[in-house]
Design a protein around this nucleic acid. Structure first.
Lengths: 169, 169
DNA sequence: CACATTGTTCAATTTGAATTGAACAATCAA
DNA sequence: TTGATTGTTCAATTCAAATTGAACAATGTG
């Protein structure tokens, strides 16, 4: 039990609620679940790192959600374990990564790249299939479209690192 | 009734199915509904423009879905009405916009910008609220974080047009 | 006009993803 | 060892978003 009055047991303040709202619909745009926004948002607006239990109590979510949410945020590199500030505490505390560069990088790596890659392999299959069409005119049309698709993917792949660089301040 | 054998009444060919699959999970990454991917995908891989009824029959979706899907795609600028190829046909036929630039532009305009804007206004409210916190240390912390949030938004706003330009070939 | 065709709207339903909660590890302390 | 604390897993449930389908425009045709 934490003896310091750090507010972990209180209800959310109005300001905190508003911040959470911003993050909740921020992550929805990115196609991530609401709880991810709440967890990251609360860490973002908290002065000291929080443990899983703090999240459960203050956000009124289940341990399961908190655990899974933290895992995803760790994978995204959006959250890290706070290195033990005082003695050998057992619980692990988390703090947010607040550099836009890192957040964007993690999102691209975890959410965008995999889709781009699986897309590319699907498309080379498509090209194969299309090249075997009988009717020459139809085949030409299909190959043309698939080629276009392939170019989209390439463009995407090229733009991502640039994007990352631009957002690195 | 179309007398040309353009395949509108047939089942989807394997190749078409594969293309749809690519688009379906393409749009899922963007947080758009599956039907959007199917509709756009079928238009993309069809040699001639299709009418609402063609979509209903070939994709086996309801008229409602097709209508709403086409509306969204029109708003995104991803689909346009095919200008009457032959006489005064009553149905309207649709064809896909295939320039990446246009697709990205529409998505940014319709899906990203609105969120950025509403986010900005929420954040200026937040800054207001935070500046009224009593405790100076806490206030400073909060203002700092909110300022950071604001910077993220600005960065986003600046990067979008660059992104658009980069994808314009 | 009556009737057919094309398309829209929106309440009801379905579906898929997020969340819960209970059982289960794992780690430490007495 | 037992019990307390911290965290994970996953089947069951809940919930929000997408889809349906039926009623309703709108437009053309004889």
């Amino acid at each position: 039990m934490n003896l310091l009055t750090d507010g972990s047991l209180h209800e959310l303040a109005p300001l905190e609620r508003q911040v959470l709202a911003v993050f909740v619909d921020g992550v929805r745009v990115l196609g991530l679940p609401r709880s991810i926004g709440e967890i990251y948002g609360l860490l973002f607006i908290s002065r000291s790192p929080l443990a899983l239990d703090d999240l459960v109590q203050r956000l009124k979510i289940s341990k399961g959600s908190a655990s899974q949410g933290l895992r995803m945020l760790k994978n995204l590199g959006a959250v890290r374990e706070a290195n033990g500030n005082d003695g050998p505490e057992r619980r692990t505390y988390y703090e947010p990564a607040v550099e836009l560069k890192r957040l964007v990088g993690g999102f691209i790596r975890e959410q965008i790249r995999p889709h781009l890659n699986s897309g590319k392999s699907k498309i080379s299959q498509l090209a194969e299939t299309a090249s075997q069409i009988e009717d020459p005119e139809h085949r030409e049309f299909l190959c043309d479209r698939i080629d276009r698709l392939d170019n989209w993917m390439r463009s995407g792949g090229k733009v991502l690192p640039i994007l990352q660089k631009l957002l690195g301040q």
